[in-house]
Simulated scan of single mutants.
Amino acid sequence: MFSPPIVSIYRLFLLFALALFPVSLSLAQDHGDQDWVFKNSKSLSELWELDEAHHRGTFLITSYKPVYFTLAKYSSDTNKDPKSEGLENTLPEPVALNVIESKFQLSLKTKIFHKVLWGRADVWAAYSQRAYWQIYNEALSRPFRETNYEPEIILNFPVKFSLLGFEGKMIGAAFTHESNGRSEPISRSWNRLGLHAGFERGQWQIMFKNWVRLGGSNDDNPGISDYIGRAEAKVSYDLKRQRFYAIARHSMKFGEKSRGSLQLNWTFPIIKNFSGHIQVFEGYGESLIDYNHRQTTVGLGVSLIN
């Protein structure tokens, strides 16, 4: 059950969303075909250069995950005293964090090998970074609360098959390292090896991922897979110049270890490439430092690349 302040936040969010929806839909109808920047988001074939018609060469930097800046993000339970599961690595005392902060995400990729493994696959290098900024916390000199760094090596195979009305476009594997670059007691990091598959149908795109964590001698966050999860599904839908997408993660376990998260996003047009962005998150692992901390967040900002 949500407490009264959270209910109020959700009511404000819903009212704001309902007020903006007809405006953004009108903009999409009025300007949708007048300029290339107003066209629908790219297909998986374009984004991942899955055929020769879309191949643009190696070492060309393109976008990977969405790039956005959240001006204000409210948390129902700010993690003022982060702790690792089963360890005594705690801060001397809780930090006086604000419940409202800003957040931004940057993400790029580049193809480094084309037509490897008997001419069937491409190899990509990717890098994503998320930062959580206590910009409104004047008492603490507006510090960055948490920054997560996520380099990846991705192997992609173009495919073509049908499943439940969707067309399978790509399958592959990826090695991912994620860390916050901090020292004890708030160091967090993990490595994982995963498989993925991408599907399309009209304006719908679906990406499924699952992974196994690769062990290490120094474990700053034991049990992280039981909180952040072992599998992910991302579903997106484009309506004119608007995009709706959801990211769900789950531990793939039952009982008390049935945990995960759900992130809902809506981007809507403002002008040219400049879009508004509303994000709602509920669950564990909103950032690495929060891997075993559950909260609900609501954020409002701008999106530059979807």
Rank of each mutant, 00 (worst) to 15 (best):
S75N: 12
D122N: 01
H55N: 06
A174R: 05
A246R: 03
H54Q: 03
P269A: 02
I112K: 01
P158G: 02
F21R: 03
Y64F: 15
P5N: 04
A96P: 12
T58F: 00
G216K: 10
G216Q: 12
H277N: 12
I224W: 03
F2N: 12
V99N: 13
V212T: 08
R56P: 01
I224G: 01
A248N: 11
V235W: 05
F244N: 01
L288D: 02
G57N: 02
D81A: 15
W133V: 09
L214S: 12
T78S: 12
A19M: 06
G255V: 07
S189W: 08
Y64K: 04
F268S: 04
K272E: 13
N156R: 03
A19D: 03
W118S: 04
R11M: 08
A121S: 05
S45C: 01
L106Y: 03
A53E: 11
Q242M: 14
L12R: 09
A121L: 00
V95N: 03
V67D: 09
L18A: 11
L117Y: 03
L106G: 03
K65D: 06
A72M: 15
E286Y: 13
I154M: 03
R230S: 13
S261T: 12
S217Y: 10
Y64N: 04
A126K: 00
T110L: 06
E200N: 05
N89C: 04
I247L: 07
Y127F: 15
I270F: 02
E88A: 12
S261L: 14
Y64C: 04
H55C: 02
Y68C: 05
F166A: 09
E85K: 11
I153H: 02
S43T: 08
P4A: 11
P66K: 00
V95T: 15
Q295V: 11
I206M: 11
S8A: 07
K83P: 01
N306I: 01
V159M: 07
R56N: 06
G168I: 01
K109L: 02
Q279E: 14
R120H: 01
S41L: 03
P92C: 11
R249T: 15
R188I: 14
E93L: 12
Y227M: 08
E88Y: 09
A233M: 08
H250N: 13
A233H: 01
N273W: 14
I289W: 06
S63D: 08
M1P: 09
V116E: 07
A17T: 10
A246H: 04
S183N: 15
A19G: 07
Q29K: 12
G57Q: 04
L25P: 03
A246Q: 12
D33Q: 11
S275G: 10
K234I: 10
Q242R: 10
P151D: 07
G119S: 00
I224P: 01
S107I: 08
R213G: 13
A28V: 02
F157M: 08
V116I: 10
L214K: 06
K103N: 11
I228C: 04
G165H: 02
P151A: 09
P185G: 08
A19Y: 05
E184H: 13
V99I: 14
D238F: 00
K209R: 06
S162N: 10
N191V: 15
D81F: 15
G32M: 03
G57S: 02
V7Q: 13
M252N: 10
L50N: 00
R142W: 05
A248M: 14
S183C: 13
V298M: 07
F254H: 08
M170A: 07
E200H: 08
S76E: 14
K240W: 09
A28D: 05
